[in-house]
């Protein structure tokens, strides 16, 4: 028996989670027992253990479960994007494969989504993780992300989120962006975003794939997202702003040159160092302007090809 098009797609990226697959499928099945039609998309991200064998066996006997197998380990973001690409439901829910999220929260998220949101993010109540290496960095990161992206999400690290399929079709995540889906969704698609509290469990099987090294990456990605967000619509304007600052430095050093050569005893070195520094800043002024022009060209070509998508809208009932 094959199912028709499901209403709900649950996407779970898996990387070496062999022990967790069967309990995960069981938990999701139980949680969604009352839902009419759903599918569970397991995305194997190049696991080297028994994940694929286990998931494949389950997919073969359970028509709700589909396995998408990536050719190598691409990372969580790409695995999630692959799952989104293959999702068929009108509503998509993403969650982690390590059973730290509770599938029983899925109906909560989808119910909230029905209230008229494009994205509903879970935030973890009473988080069961190590304090020093997980909770504190996460708290700092979330404050930073809130501050910089201006998207009020308390817990960006929580994978349990629900999306309208229209939203997922209009954004694309790559690199390490899965932590910033709300920020990306807000910035590029104008999504309406809500939060609901979700349960959180300690890890039962397998090991965590995160280390402290990701903090630096998160900071870098945050900077990238911030820059793209403020830069992508008018790169020339942003570059011109930088170029203006450089021009101010150039002028200041130019003035210093004049003062030094008029007011003080003339030394040969004076006549080189200040004007030299002024010229370096002047060089930067020109360089940034030219770079801004190149960025405008790239953007222009993209828009001309019809690459710019409309933001999501809801037509209000009269």
């Amino acid at each position: 028996m094959t199912l028709g098009k499901p209403n709900l797609s649950v996407v779970v990226p898996l990387y070496n989670e062999a022990d967790n697959v069967a309990p995960l499928v069981h938990a999701v099945t139980e949680a969604l027992a009352e839902s009419t039609s759903w599918e569970l998309i397991l995305v194997d991200d190049g696991s080297t253990d028994q994940t694929v064998a286990t998931a494949d066996a389950i997919a073969a006997r359970d028509e709700h479960v589909r396995l998408i197998q990536l050719a190598r380990n691409y990372g969580q973001t790409t695995a999630m994007q692959a799952g989104f690409d293959h999702a068929r439901g009108n509503v998509v829910v993403s969650m982690d494969g390590d059973l730290q999220n509770d599938p029983r929260d899925i109906p909560l998220l989808t119910a909230k989504l029905e209230e008229g949101y494009d994205l509903v993010a879970g935030y973890r109540m009473r988080r069961k993780d190590k304090l020093i290496t997980r909770k504190i960095p996460s708290w700092i990161a979330n404050r930073l992300i809130q501050r910089i992206t201006r998207v009020q999400i308390r817990d960006n690290g929580c994978s349990l989120k629900a999306y309208r399929i229209e939203l997922l079709r209009s954004i694309h995540i790559y690199s390490d962006m899965h932590r910033f889906i709300p920020a990306v969704a807000a910035a590029t698609a104008g999504a309406r975003i809500a939060e609901v509290p979700v349960r959180h469990h300690a890890r039962r099987y397998g090991t965590s794939k995160y280390g402290l090294s990701r903090i630096l990456k998160v900071l870098g990605d945050l900077l990238t997202i911030k820059m793209i967000r403020s830069f992508r619509d008018r790169p020339l304007a942003m570059m011109a702003l930088g170029s203006l600052v450089a021009a101010v430095f150039a002028l200041a050093l130019g003035a210093a040159t004049i003062v030094a050569s008029v007011g003080f005893v003339q030394q040969k070195a004076n006549a080189v160092v200040f004007p030299g520094a002024a010229m370096l800043w002047l060089g930067l002024t020109g360089y940034l302007l030219m770079l801004g022009l190149v960025a405008e060209v790239a953007l222009w070509e993209h828009r001309r090809d019809g690459g710019e998508k409309l933001p999501l809208v809801h037509e209000e009932d009269s």
């Binding site: 998408i68 197998q69 990536l70 050719a71 190598r72 691409y74 790409t78 695995a79 994007q81 692959a82 690409d85 694309h172 790559y174 990238t224 820059m227 793209i228 830069f231 992508r232 790169p235 770079l291 190149v294 960025a295 790239a298 953007l299 993209h302 690459g307 998508k309």
Partner: peptide, 18 residues
């Protein structure tokens, strides 16, 4: 600028292979 170019191309491309 490189990041902008990647970002602009990302929407029409899948960077993974099954």
């Amino acid at each position: 600028v490189g990041e902008i170019i990647v970002h602009l191309h990302a929407s029409g491309r899948r960077s993974y292979r099954l």
